[in-house]
Nucleic acid binder design. Sequence first.
DNA 1: TCCTTATTTTTTGTCGTCAATTAATGACTT
DNA 2: AAGTCATTAATTGACGACAAAAAATAAGGA
Lengths: 255, 255
Amino acid sequence: MSSTATKSNGRGRPKVRPSVLGNRKPSARASAAEKEQDIYDAIVASVMGQRLKPGTKLPELALCELFGVGRSLVQKVLQRLAHDHVVQLRPNRGAIVAMPSPEEVGQLFEARRALEASVLPLVAERAARADYASLRRQLREEHKAMHRYAQTQWAGLASAFHLRLGELSGNPILYRYLSEIISRCSLVVALFQPPGNATCEHEEHVRVVDYLEQGNVRAAQREMKRHLIDLEHHIRLVEESTDQSLADILGLAAE
Amino acid sequence: MSSTATKSNGRGRPKVRPSVLGNRKPSARASAAEKEQDIYDAIVASVMGQRLKPGTKLPELALCELFGVGRSLVQKVLQRLAHDHVVQLRPNRGAIVAMPSPEEVGQLFEARRALEASVLPLVAERAARADYASLRRQLREEHKAMHRYAQTQWAGLASAFHLRLGELSGNPILYRYLSEIISRCSLVVALFQPPGNATCEHEEHVRVVDYLEQGNVRAAQREMKRHLIDLEHHIRLVEESTDQSLADILGLAAE
DNA sequence: TCCTTATTTTTTGTCGTCAATTAATGACTT
DNA sequence: AAGTCATTAATTGACGACAAAAAATAAGGA
């Protein structure tokens, strides 16, 4: 018999109360809506920062204690996360961090190519000189930042250009769809991204703006499409090169 | 003093317990998930059938009694309806049936044109002979049904063609976005549709399929775009011709 | 030794209850 | 008489509680 276990009959599921997830103080008191957003942001940030790996379970009670809120708020957040494909929600089995299959990744990038191409004509139709100037300014900032920051924080900056294009389309609906897709792509990139490699997308971005400003929409679409295909290929390479981590992932999922 | 009101001091908000909404028996016992879907479908059907007019309030308690479920289920349904833009959810003020502004309608149709155009190349790339045959069969059915049924039930059939195209694209993500947009468009059509007018879209649909099967994607896109612009114009005309109903709508919203 | 089974804990799904905000009227004031 | 204020109902927001399903292990059998 072990020394510490006092007569534990040992039948049934073992109690795992230690709650390995670090205990975070409930921070400053905030309104419920803000708390909800905080929880959402915290989970998204953890997934993006690879501290929550795909397949990890997210029990409601743990999140409740961790953030000091009731289950209704946690459920609402999980619902939203599921809608944004950050987590997967299985009936009666709870939420786990999403792990998109290679097939889904393909569909994701295909949809992204289609959407971004559809957005460009609207941009060309509506953007003014000042908008192009602001785009180019943003591209310069992005280029400078790329060398300065770690790519973890830089991940968001890379998408900013694409998001800005969606914004310039002047159509909020297409913009929201594009935001959703870009977020999911960023998540995929984050999942397969070994630290310290990031493609420089600067030149391709500049070319897209050039074509747009010249009024050559067709060329801009071609350039954008090629750029996105490049990005996908890059992900695929990384994905293949790290298939031993796939075992890790499965191991962790089984945990 | 009135005869029935026994000493009602009459101060404060009057009690309006009669619950004017007809009481529906809780029907057959179903699993919770099915009940949720039932509630969702019932509300969508009521909105589509113009029995729930824009601006109508949807109190949670009323829905609870009406369907015999707790508030959590109703809240989940309202959340979903809000996400699908069937209802509008205002903080602390409950849900009302959505009433899209003319501007939103414009953005909606613009987004739809963009999406449907993006889908066509994928369809042309992937559809096989059998798919085109099935499309044409569906078009014939649609044409026959158009003369037989009332347009209320026919509203769903009209969208079926477009949905099928989205399905044939082979991309579930684009298909879901297209479904969302088409649903919202159908809702707009339902809102502004006086009984007994429906455009015959048959010929235009056939032309799109013709072009697609010939491999002339560009022409198919042009045809589709024109078809959708026609549809939007038709809505606009109806909308203008019924602006006295706008007063009705506002009156009802103030109720 | 491996597979099946029984039991216990965990975890989710749903409901009812309480506090807080909003809406709607009558009463009061100018 | 019209506008403002106070009082009351209605309604949402959030929490905790109970029941049901799933998960995880030890015990028992082939």
